[in-house]
Each structure stands twice: as structure tokens, then as C-alpha cells.
Design a protein around this nucleic acid. Structure first.
Length: 412
RNA sequence: CGGGAGAUGGCAGAGCGGUUGAAUGCACUGGUCUUGAAAACCAGCGAGGGUAAUACCUCCGGGAGUUCGAAUCUCCCUCUCCCGGCCA
């Protein structure tokens, strides 16, 4: 959530920055006006409440003095009505405010480039050279080694579900274990969390209320399948005040992720790239504001080193404003080279949300006497499905077999 | 899913309908003492809003109600715990 006070005081600046994310100025204007009106009405209300409190206290004294109470009663009741009325007004304004505030995205950092979409992202660096082939490399779904059973996935659920078999299934499990171990060595501690989350949790990280259509909802329950482990892991700390000494908190977590992929009909319909369910190992950090940039870089390096350790060529890309997610102030994607597709594809995405999620989820830490909002960061270690794709395409042999990276041998 | 109990500050745990934002204990922070630490003693210590800082307002799971006044009474919801059934 935006800092409303900041919006009140630095309207032009914020409005300009949010243009990167295509937020219309009218929305911000409305937000500002409501917040100012709210402040005004609240002041009126509090004044009346103070008066009422005082008069109520007098009651005890009047009883002692055996004064006639009826007159005071009438007075108090009259005031009570006024308070109720104002209270309703204030509440209405609060609802109006939060309705809008909840759907305004985070402000991009200064360093985020302007741009409409993916095509205007900026390549930061290339790591490892793509492999050379003495034959035409296939796309992963063309490789007929019995790992991927698309038909049966559809039979069991529907399109965009896949069954992994044989070494494909094993590789998936090996990758999960390997990544968790890798991240642990990087200083992230492992957690295992529920794959279902309630509304408040999803609101905390920004999926709700705006993106309900992208989530699978459980019938007859106010629960949703998580779209990423970022949701439960970050919200582990919702409504908590963290001891300063415990920061930064660095967590890694494996989860299944569930996404409706509404609006991406027709895109990546073949293969493992875009599924309704996929495994992912996630990184989440809770940090003090002054250290969040450093942690961000650590997370990017952690994911990049992981790719390197698997021998996968990739590049780091800075997302432009138009391609930034709702909660992110800054995002670096890692794109892995896919020889079959002859292009780089996103396999990891690391974001700093600054205090945006912390404000929503009320995650704070004690700084001396004051409670301050933390910064929250999240990033894929790697998406498992896409890593399998990358391994299949990069390490395919002419005879259709796949060479498993050396480092995974112990995990298979 | 059926039966019972409960929901209060970081935790534990009091709280006749009227200075109770809330006793007490633990934890925590600062100080005295000590070579240092522990112990002991003294002091401070919930959150949000508001203010230059005070005032002041709101909050005792959530919502509605009774009352001049509610953490305290009534109703609804949610959640937790114990017992029983089912089950990895």
C-alpha cells in the first residue's frame, strides 16, 4: 500500500513516478482528496468523543451530589446521535480510501527505466555462453524421452497440467532438494508452509483484491491456492513486530504454485513453460530499509549462482516500469537460454517491494522506541518446471537422451 | 462432523457496569551494586491515529445490541483448546 501521508505531501512527485506504472493521475487525486476529507471528519469526531467522555465521567459526581440526572442524560443522548452520524461518515470514507489504496501499485524506484512492456527491459549482464550444437536442438516437448506426459495431465485435470515420469519426476525432486540445500548454504533457512491461504494473507502481499481472477479459489471456503510461496512466507510475519536483532530474516521455501493464467490464453500452450500448477523454490527476505538493497543483490546472486552451478547460460534483466509487478518497486529477472526456442526465457524473478507489502501486512520492527516498517523482498530461487525445460533443451543429445548436470547426480 | 471450555498487552494471568489502556508474574530496556557476569534493588516497558511536543481519539478475537457509561451484560460470527467419530 502507498504511504498516504507521503501522497498528501509529495503529490506531484509520486504521481510522476507512478506514471511508469500507468496509474492515472485522477486516481491519485481522488485518493488524496478522500484522505484529506477523512482527516477533517475524524478531527470533528474526536472532538465530540472527547466531550462525551468528559460528560460521562461527570455522571459519577452528579450521582454523589444527587443532582437531577435527566437533563444530562438528554444532553448526552443528543451528542451520541451526532457521534454516530459522524462515525458513519468516517467509516464510509475509510472504506472508500482503502478500496482505492488497495489497488494502487507500488512506486517504482528511481533506477527503474521507463518502458511499456517486456521489450523495453534492460539487459544487465550475460552469464555463461549458450551451448553449441552440431544438430538442430529440439524444443523440450519435442524430445521424446518419456519424461513429460501432457496427455494424462489433461485427462486428470485439464490443459496446462502435466505429469512427470521416470527421470523427469526424479529430476524434479532432485532439483527441489538441491536448490533448498544451495540456498541454505547462502544463509536462507528452510520453511514448509500451507499451500492454501486466506483473504487477509493474500491481501498482505498484494494479490488481493485486484487479482482475484488469477487465483484458484476453494469452493465453500474463503481460501485460495497460493500462486507463489512468497504469499505464505512473507505473511508469516504479518501483524508482528520483529526484534531488530533478528533482521535480516532470510527464508527459502519449496511450494507448489497455482495460477489460473487468466488472460494468457494462447500463450505457451505447448510444453511445461506455462502451467496451472508448478513447483518452485522461493527466496523471501525481511530486512531493515537501509539493508534491503544489499539483500536484493544477494538474492539475485544466489539465484544466478544456482543457474551457473547447473551450467545453464542466462542473463540478468532489469524490468522496466511497464513490466513491473503490482507490489514491486524494482525487479530483476533471470532469463535462461533455451536452445530449442532459440531465446532467453524468464526462470527467476527477484523483487524488492520496499515497505509496500509491509504496510499492507503490518510487518514492523523495533528501532529503539519506534516501530518502523520493514522491507520485504522475494524472488524465485528457480521455477522447477522451467529448470527442467532448460536442462532438457540445453543438455539434449542427438540420440534424444539428456545429460544430467554433474552436480545433481548425488540427488537423483 | 457431534459434545464441552475458552478468546485480555511479547508470553503467562487478574479484572464489582463508572479515572481500567487495564493488577500481578515472566521476558525485555535503562540505572545502582560488581574487576566482569549472575543475583538483588530502583525505574521504564502494548498498538494505531493525532501533535512541533503535549493534549486528545480509537483498540481487551470480529460484528450488532442494552446503557448516560461496557474488557465487564445480551445476540450473531470466527478462531483456539479438550472429549468422541472419521482419517494421512
Amino acid at each position: 500500500m502507498l504511504d498516504i501521508k507521503l501522497l498528501q505531501n509529495n503529490f506531484d512527485e509520486i504521481s510522476k513516478k507512478l506514471k511508469k506504472k500507468k496509474v492515472p493521475e485522477e486516481t491519485l487525486n481522488e485518493l488524496k482528496e478522500i484522505s484529506i476529507e477523512l482527516k477533517k471528519e475524524r478531527k470533528k469526531l474526536e472532538f465530540l468523543q472527547a466531550e462525551q467522555n468528559n460528560n460521562s465521567k461527570m455522571f459519577k459526581i452528579y450521582i454523589k451530589e444527587k443532582k437531577n440526572l435527566d437533563k444530562h442524560k438528554i444532553e448526552l443522548l443528543k451528542n451520541k446521535e451526532k457521534i454516530a452520524e459522524l462515525n458513519g461518515k468516517v467509516r464510509e470514507l475509510e472504506e472508500k480510501l482503502s478500496k482505492i489504496a488497495n489497488i494502487v501499485p507500488n512506486i517504482p524506484l528511481e533506477s527503474v527505466p521507463y518502458g511499456e512492456d517486456e521489450s523495453e527491459n534492460i539487459e544487465l549482464s550475460l552469464i555463461l555462453a549458450p551451448p553449441l550444437f552440431n544438430f538442430t536442438p529440439k524444443e523440450h516437448w519435442e524430445i521424446d524421452n518419456g519424461w513429460l506426459d501432457f496427455k494424462r495431465g489433461v485427462k486428470l485435470a485439464k490443459s496446462r497440467f502435466t505429469v512427470l515420469k521416470h527421470d523427469g519426476a526424479k529430476l524434479s525432486r532432485a532439483l527441489i532438494n538441491y536448490m533448498l540445500d544451495f540456498n541454505t548454504k547462502y544463509g536462507f533457512s528452510e520453511v514448509c508452509v500451507p499451500f492454501l491461504a486466506n483473504r487477509e494473507t493474500l491481501r498482505g502481499t498484494g494479490q488481493l483484491p485486484k487479482f482475484e481472477n488469477d487465483l484458484f479459489k476453494i469452493e465453500d471456503e474463503d481460501l485460495f491456492l497460493i500462486p507463489t510461496a512468497e504469499v505464505p512466507v512473507t505473511n508469516l510475519f504479518q501483524n508482528e513486530i520483529i526484534d531488530q536483532n533478528e533482521l535480516p530474516i532470510k527464508i527459502t521455501c519449496y511450494s507448489e504454485c497455482f495460477r489460473k493464467e487468466a488472460g494468457s490464453a494462447g500463450r505457451d500452450t505447448r510444453g511445461l513453460i506455462r502451467q496451472h500448477q508448478f513447483s518452485k523454490v522461493e527466496l523471501v527476505s525481511i530486512a531493515k530499509p537501509e539493508e534491503s538493497e544489499e539483500i536484493f543483490n544477494l538474492m539475485v546472486n544466489c539465484a544466478s549462482d544456482l543457474l551457473t552451478s547447473l551450467g545453464l547460460a542466462h542473463r540478468k534483466v532489469m524490468l522496466c516500469g511497464g513490466d513491473l509487478g503490482f507490489s514491486a518497486a524494482k525487479t530483476v529477472d533471470l532469463e535462461v537460454w533455451l536452445p530449442g526456442q532459440n531465446r532467453y526465457r524468464e526462470i527467476s524473478s527477484i523483487s524488492n517491494t520496499l515497505d509496500f507489502q509491509a504496510r499492507r501486512a503490518k510487518i514492523r520492527y523495533k528501532d529503539g522506541k519506534k516501530n518502523r516498517l520493514v522491507h520485504t523482498l522475494n524472488g524465485s530461487s528457480l521455477a522447477i518446471g522451467r529448470t527442467i525445460v532448460a536442462i532438457m533443451e540445453n543438455f539434449q543429445c542427438k540420440d534424444g537422451t539428456i545429460k544430467i548436470p554433474e552436480i545433481l547426480k548425488d540427488y537423483m
